[in-house]
């Protein structure tokens, strides 16, 4: 059973079609990247899976269960998302503690104190950050909180929408290491959107290259070592990010 399966996915915002005929499967435990330039529709694919971009047709299933067009309680336990901008994804008037307790409250889970403390430890945040507000945290710390929130419900599948692109370069590495460690510890499946090819090489097993709303190629991450891409657009993207094809 695949963790995420997309079949002939078309997504439109109003009358504008932004994604056309996207199909791919992500195996359980795999880390899969969606790469492409800005506006290629890669974030929209994530939003459609999450239920935040309801205008789609086609088939989406997560862990074998078909997806509806809206977020749902059952889906929340299986799949969560980390957003691109940690400055916009945390409520400005809620403490870290409130943010992390909320999923537990929504799903009526007990021993909140212990779970919040444990999760703070897991994402490498000191206890003293627990009652701080987002404006008292740095970007990297905020993103750790956002990752912690996504993990509170112990999902198996994580959707990562450029989780490091809004952060400083030095902090990016920390967050990527954190994500890599969490995946190994909890056996997570990642579907990660990024335009940064080195991140793909570091984090992912396979990738789909998107251009103008279509998937032009699905390649193993090892293609980044030798530039062995089949599609001309993929090769151009690879060359633009500093790689040189060896063939």
């Amino acid at each position: 059973m695949s963790a995420i399966s997309l079949q002939g996915l078309d997504i439109s915002y109003g009358s504008a079609k932004v994604v056309e005929g996207v199909s791919f499967d992500v195996a359980e435990g795999e880390s899969f990247a969606l790469v492409g330039e800005s506006g290629s529709g890669k974030s929209t694919v994530l939003k459609a899976i999450a239920g935040l971009a309801p205008g789609w047709t086609g088939e989406i299933s997560v862990l074998g269960q078909p997806r509806g067009h809206r977020p749902g309680r059952g889906f929340a336990r299986r799949c969560q998302m980390v957003f691109q901008d940690p400055y916009g994804s945390l409520h400005p008037r809620k403490t870290v503690d409130t943010v992390l307790s909320e999923p537990l409250q929504v799903h009526g889970l007990g021993s909140r104190d212990a779970r919040v403390e444990e999760m703070l430890r897991a994402v490498g945040l000191d206890r003293r950050f627990r009652f701080r507000y987002p404006h008292q945290l740095s970007g990297g710390q905020r993103q750790r909180v956002a990752i912690a929130r996504a993990l509170m419900l112990e999902p198996k599948v994580m959707l990562l929408d450029e989780p490091t692109s809004a952060l400083d370069v030095s902090v990016q590495a920390e967050i990527l290491n954190l994500l890599k460690r969490l995946r190994a510890e909890q056996g997570l499946t990642y579907l990660m959107v990024t335009h940064n090819l080195p991140v793909v090489g570091f984090m992912c097993d396979r990738m789909a290259v998107m251009n103008r709303g279509r998937v032009v190629e699905i390649a193993p991450a090892t293609a980044l070592h030798d530039g062995s891409f089949a599609d001309p657009y993929s090769r151009a993207l690879y060359a633009a990010s500093g790689g040189t094809a060896h063939d």
Partner: peptide, 23 residues
């Protein structure tokens, strides 16, 4: 995004309006 993230947690519309929008 923070409203989207809360919806994704399975929170109801009432909860989002009362706990996230009104404050």
């Amino acid at each position: 995004d923070f409203i989207g993230a809360t919806r994704l947690l399975g929170a109801s519309h009432g909860r989002i309006i009362l706990r996230h929008v009104l404050p």
